[in-house]
Amino acid sequence: MNSAVKNRIKDNAFKYFGIACTSFGLLMLAIFIGNILIEGVARIDWDFITNFPSRNPEKAGILPALVGTLWIMGLTAIIAIPLGVSAGVYLEEYGKKSRLANILEINISNLAGVPSIIYGLLGLEIFGRILGMGGSLLAGASTLSLLILPIIIVSTREALKAVPKSIKEASFAMGASKWQTIWYQLLPASFGGVITGIILALSRAIGETAPLIVIGALAYVPFVPASPTDEFSVLPIQIFNWISRPQKGFAINAASAIIILLLVTFVLNGVAMYLRNRWQKKVKW
């Protein structure tokens, strides 16, 4: 066998090995989703979405948890987006060389690696106790905001970095100040990247359970939260609660709730992809 043939065999071997590796994760996910669908899809109807939790699994629904999840998403977005984007702009455009910015940068990278339950404890102490928010939506959203800030900051910086230097130069040469350059040129040009980062961060927040349990989110909520100071539950906590019950009916409910949670996440990711593609078509360098 000459070396060219050998090389080709090796080449092919690696290709199939790669395909196997790639399919492994996808296959597992497919099995999981298939399983969940078989178990849970029959249970989903309008009642399931509009009912309150109940001791009777056939009557139980996810309304408070779903509304709680939507509230948490909205509030987290309102808190985390301005903070994260501003911090990203500062670090990338203003603080690049200062020692303070360096220290901040290292800390932000570290924050991204902190386990989420630690954020829960931090949120419990600062938002729940010191600021007196208790187990409210506001406390939950603030805690999750802390959790996803590093993601938003890092993706904002990456998006700004991707804007060609020539655009910045052109703007400065026209007599624009730094702020005007950021506001009129850099942010619009990097919008696609920034928004993608934001939505990925939010889809991470949507699945978090641990920090919310720590700050005292409820497992049983017989009301729909109506203001940011109300107590709440979210879908992951509802799922966790149902799964830990012995009756078979609740396991089915959990599967159905997982389908709804996945749907919400997919919709968010879909929006992210749509926005990114639309923006990339508009901005070509």
Binding site: S166, I167, A170, A173, M174, G175, A189, K282, K284, W285
Partner: peptide, 17 residues
Amino acid sequence: ELRKQIGMVFQKPNPFP
């Protein structure tokens, strides 16, 4: 203010997007 008085054209055309 200075740069309103002194314009600049660069090597590579760099229109804003």
